[in-house]
Design a protein around this nucleic acid. Structure first.
Lengths: 235, 235
DNA sequence: TCGCCACCTTGATCTTGATCAATCGGCACC
DNA sequence: GGTGCCGATTGATCAAGATCAAGGTGGCGA
């Protein structure tokens, strides 16, 4: 587990760890444990004492809230290489998770001790700055999500989500595919499954995307981009 | 401006500064400037380079996004003693404001240099932890807002907002009044002014609140609380 | 005092997306 | 090779809240 050449290369993928000094990272990694979740398995529930935070190695994990009536809203979908639960320590509610976490697919995780992390933060500015960066990113994402939920309709939200998910930095991104259960996308976008199905149908008929089970393939990035920049005039 | 006895008592009101070492706070305060905004005056716009962050001394400041069509969604209403714009530095978009800021009423602010703050953060863990705490609070608030927007209807959102705004820690809170323009509340809750007016009317007729211009007085906290815990069955 | 303007209220109607319902299509498990 | 179950699709209807359309009200400056 501790190769001398690339001690913790896998951990470095996470922004949180990217710039952390080697010795501090080693300290964190020393106390870490690995765990595997089966699809649908709950990792923790909202309100539980947060003694650990996590990094996803493989699979997808959803962070979500439930209404009293049982409706679910996914706040964030965590992908491999991302961390979650690391911001909890500083919450007013002295260390309780503000959301539920559950595996969307079979998943592998690293788990870290909050207490150890706290010690690392006290000793390393790089670690602090890493956490600040990670929290800033999350903050920004949430603000964007609020804007999207309140200022834009369901079609727009879906299109924006698709464009956000595909790597898409470059002109002709090689990978225009997205693999996520539809129910998960619906919950993330606060859309009913029936409505999502209709919107996907509409986009498919317009030859903008292709759908096959869990896979959504983006066919015409340019047209989707235009759809999102031009507001709500639709067929 | 620098009384020796209580050097920066006013600044200490902000969570961000509460536990910052005296000398660091002094350093920040040294470069700070004061500014006054008239009602409706814009402080900064989304996308501008963020060279400063702020603390409100008096008045209200709204942070908001605009849709291409000009619709506004208030993300947060900043009250006296609170800071804003301090989390921007660590954003991926190297220091650009993610929202617009405008005075809701005449306002007094302190402004601080991000650059100086960054220096303080490098030297003081307390400062880092203060910022982490402030960002955590904001994160939590945004998650709650997303839940509220997606899982709850307009009446519920308003009631939850009212209960959240009144100090309300104790049983019989002495101050059950809230003073905010209705348009601002509407935008914060993502409700149309017409709809807000109707909901306020409904609550007023049920003797749960009293409304007089900008003032909303909460009459029956217990009943409102019950309304929020019991879901959506309404008259 | 008047007149203007911004904001609020109230009523009528419309629209988006939710809900209800039926059917279909894998897929696992006997 | 059923059979039961879960998720997706599609159609029909419904409802919360938006939009459109008039008034009302109050503050404020001339």
């Amino acid at each position: 587990m501790n190769q001398p050449a690339t001690p913790h290369a896998e951990l470095r993928r996470a922004y949180l760890f990217a710039d952390m000094p080697d010795d501090q990272l080693a300290r964190l990694a020393h106390g870490m444990h690995m765990s595997e979740l089966k699809q649908g398995q709950v990792l923790f529930r909202q309100g539980e004492l947060a003694e650990r935070f996590f990094m996803v190695r493989e699979g997808l994990v959803k962070l979500y809230r439930l209404s009293p009536e049982g409706d679910e809203k996914i706040i964030e979908i965590i992908k491999p290489g991302q961390t979650f639960g690391e911001a909890v320590m500083f919450m007013g509610n002295q260390g309780r998770y503000p959301v539920n976490a559950e595996a969307v697919s079979d998943a592998h995780l690293f788990g870290f001790e909050q207490k150890v992390f706290l010690g690392v933060l006290r000793e390393s500015h790089e670690a602090c700055f890493g956490l600040l960066g990670s929290m800033s990113r999350r903050l920004h994402m949430l603000v964007n999500q609020i804007e999207s939920l309140t200022l834009q309709n369901a079609t727009y939200r879906l299109v924006a989500y698709l464009l956000d998910q595909i790597p898409g930095g470059v002109k002709h991104s090689p990978d225009l595919e997205l693999t996520t259960p539809k129910g998960v996308i619906a919950s993330r976008l606060a859309i009913q499954p029936e409505t999502l199905s209709r919107i996907l149908g509409k986009l498919r008929r317009a030859n903008l995307i292709e759908v096959e089970g869990n896979h959504i393939m983006v066919r015409d990035v340019a047209a989707l981009r235009k759809l999102v920049h031009m507001p709500p005039t639709e067929t």
